[in-house]
Design a binder for these strands. Structure first.
Length: 109
DNA sequence: CTGATGACTGATA
DNA sequence: CTATCAGCCATCA
């Protein structure tokens, strides 16, 4: 069997994020079996060019968008998130239902 | 090898 | 709530 590279695992973890939901960089890294590699996730995203990849669902640990407010990337990400029913306010992401970053941490794995 | 850099994180004030 | 700081990891000059 083939072992997926760290990059593939990270991409898979990102693709696994359900529509209308979000995850943090560190969360993705952990889900990919690479704890402590949040910056690696960020680097992958900055390099990737796959339009099918839901990169906009990846946020910082504090639930904020990684791009500076007012920047191109920030506007695009907020727009994409709102298109999925996610509420974005002042760079801050808030989920409509009880789903949020805490819900993920809450649920034992 | 050393130092700088970045779509990061957690602790502290 | 914001601002700083140190730590961490991969990559590059």
């Amino acid at each position: 069997m083939v072992e997926l590279s760290a990059v593939d695992k990270i991409l898979a973890a990102i693709r696994a994020i359900p529509r209308g939901q979000v995850a943090g960089y560190g969360h993705i890294a952990q889900r990919a079996g690479l704890p402590g590699r949040a910056r690696m996730v960020a680097r992958i995203l900055s390099e990737n060019a796959d339009p099918k990849l839901p990169w906009h669902r990846v946020l910082r640990s504090d639930g904020r968008i990684a791009f500076p407010e007012g920047s191109k990337g920030h506007r695009e990400q907020s727009q994409r998130l709102r298109a999925e029913g996610v509420i974005v306010e002042k760079g801050r992401v808030r989920l409509p239902r009880e789903l949020d970053l805490d819900a993920e941490l809450w649920r034992p794995r």
